Simulated scan of single mutants.
Amino acid sequence: MAEQRAPHLVVFTGAGISAESGIQTFRAEDGLWANHPVEEVATPRAWRRDPAKVLEFYNQRRDQVRRARPNAAHKALAALEKQGFRVSIITQNIDDLHERAGSRQVLHLHGEILKARSTVDRRMQYPLPRGGIELGDICDKGSQLRPDVVWFGEEVPHFADACELVGEADLLLVVGTSLAVMPAASLLQYAPLDAPCVLVDPEAELLAPPGVTRLSEPAGRGVPALVRHWSREGRLWLPETVAAS
């Protein structure tokens, strides 16, 4: 008899899950982004115009990420993986909170702030366990290092990998995203027709597309609640209390 395949939960997380750990989103009215329009710090044009300003901004963000700690939602997803579920996480976030919580399969759509990369060869990446990036820091090919993040106007190199993962889902869990940033927002279209999809977000009633189950809770409450149901039953399903919401 063939071995039964472990249920595959594919999780798509956005800024909302990290915000509960104290990391500001670029839409927030306070914090690092408040006085830094996207056009000034998160586009290729901004980098060409004032690389020192861009580096300083991301050095500040990097410090913020290092101070942050995984919250209950990050920990619940890692715990589910340890129980034998197959959990693949696709995240729009550039922090490492999923990894620090214990998740092992994490795909960063928009890059990782704790890495630098070459400006001439994106495959040349360098971990940043401490400190930041300064003008004059160069890769092995002699070019200036930049943050390993995807800026507005740049291609998303791992999008095809993310689509493939979503296509393998037994259940798709979307957490803390407005589903407004393309192309990531289109990922839901790649889910199998018979795979349920749940959106956990305080604004879920407003944000969820048709056919998506809404759980209008912060990530730190909604995700652990779902994980408790799945852990108890040993399978991925929609509890009545959630499906009715």
Score class of each variant (00 low, 15 high):
residue 134 E to T: 11
residue 194 D to I: 06
residue 202 P to I: 02
residue 146 R to I: 01
residue 163 C to L: 10
residue 132 G to L: 05
residue 146 R to T: 02
residue 163 C to V: 14
residue 168 E to D: 11
residue 159 F to N: 04
residue 162 A to D: 06
residue 219 A to H: 02
residue 126 Y to W: 04
residue 203 E to T: 02
residue 214 R to Y: 06
residue 166 V to C: 09
residue 186 S to G: 15
residue 150 V to Q: 06
residue 205 E to P: 00
residue 214 R to Q: 12
residue 183 P to S: 07
residue 157 P to I: 11
residue 191 A to S: 08
residue 209 P to R: 01
residue 197 C to E: 12
residue 127 P to L: 01
residue 204 A to S: 04
residue 132 G to M: 05
residue 151 W to Q: 08
residue 184 A to N: 12
residue 203 E to R: 11
residue 125 Q to W: 08
residue 123 R to S: 14
residue 181 V to A: 10
residue 198 V to F: 03
residue 155 E to Y: 13
residue 161 D to Q: 14
residue 136 G to I: 11
residue 219 A to P: 00
residue 157 P to L: 11
residue 219 A to Q: 01
residue 176 G to R: 01
residue 144 Q to K: 09
residue 213 T to G: 04
residue 124 M to E: 13
residue 123 R to W: 11
residue 161 D to R: 13
residue 122 R to E: 15
residue 191 A to H: 02
residue 194 D to E: 14
residue 125 Q to V: 15
residue 175 V to A: 01
residue 186 S to F: 12
residue 120 V to Q: 13
residue 124 M to D: 13
residue 128 L to M: 08
residue 163 C to P: 00
residue 188 L to Q: 06
residue 124 M to P: 00
residue 200 V to H: 03
residue 206 L to V: 09
residue 161 D to V: 06
residue 152 F to E: 03
residue 142 G to K: 02
residue 146 R to Q: 10
residue 206 L to E: 13
